[in-house]
Amino acid sequence: MASSAESFTPVYTPPGWRDNVKDLAAGATGGVAQVVIGQPFDLVKVRLQTQGGSGALSLTQQIWQREGPLAFYKGSLVPLLGVGACVSIQFSAFHYFQHQLTSHNRPPTLPQTYLSGALAGLTNSILSGPIEHIRIRLQTQPQAHPLYTGPWHCALTLLRTGGLPALYRGQTATLIREGHGIGIWFATYEGLLSLAAKRQSLTRESLPNWQIALCGALAGEMLWLLSHPIDVVKSRMQSDGFGKDQKYRSFREAWGVAVRGGGGGVWKGLGTALLRAGPVSGGTFVVVEMVRKVLG
Rank of each mutant, 00 (worst) to 15 (best):
L164D: 11
K234S: 11
W64D: 01
T174K: 06
A277H: 06
A197P: 11
G150K: 14
I182K: 15
L24R: 03
G296Q: 14
N209W: 15
I131D: 04
L43E: 00
V21K: 12
G282V: 09
Q34M: 15
L59N: 06
S103E: 15
A258Q: 06
L147G: 08
R106I: 01
R47M: 09
G261A: 03
Y148W: 00
Q100D: 11
L226C: 09
Q61V: 09
I184E: 02
W64I: 02
W224P: 05
E190D: 14
V294L: 10
V266S: 00
A219E: 03
S281T: 10
Q246M: 12
L223I: 08
Q112D: 06
R249G: 12
K74H: 04
T272P: 06
K45Y: 03
Q51G: 11
Q112L: 09
E178N: 15
P165H: 04
L225T: 00
F8S: 10
P165N: 05
R292T: 15
V36P: 02
T174V: 10
G117E: 04
Q200G: 13
R204T: 15
A33Y: 03
R292Q: 14
L127T: 04
A277Q: 07
A273I: 07
R292Y: 13
T172S: 08
D240H: 02
Y148P: 01
S206Q: 13
W64Q: 03
Y248L: 05
V257R: 14
L127P: 07
S235A: 15
T172A: 09
V280P: 07
G75L: 01
R106T: 02
N20A: 15
R66Q: 12
D42K: 02
I182Y: 13
P15Y: 03
Q238P: 02
P151Q: 11
Q139E: 13
V35F: 01
I126P: 06
G296T: 13
I184S: 05
L274G: 14
G170L: 03
I37N: 01
G181I: 04
H104L: 10
E205H: 06
S128N: 05
L57K: 13
A155T: 12
L48T: 08
G220S: 14
P69D: 04
S239D: 01
K234F: 14
E205W: 04
G121V: 08
G282F: 12
H99S: 03
G296R: 15
G55F: 10
V232L: 07
F72A: 00
H104Q: 13
G55H: 12
G296H: 14
P146M: 02
A219D: 02
H95A: 06
E6G: 07
V36H: 02
L159T: 12
V286L: 13
L110I: 05
R47H: 13
L225I: 05
L175Q: 05
V291P: 08
K22D: 12
W255A: 06
A56S: 14
P107D: 06
A118G: 04
I182A: 10
L59W: 05
Y189T: 09
Q65C: 06
V266K: 00
V44G: 00
F94T: 02
Q98S: 11
G150S: 09
P40K: 02
A33P: 11
L101C: 02
Y73E: 00
L59I: 07
G16S: 12
F41N: 10
G216P: 11
K45I: 03
R199D: 07
P111R: 04
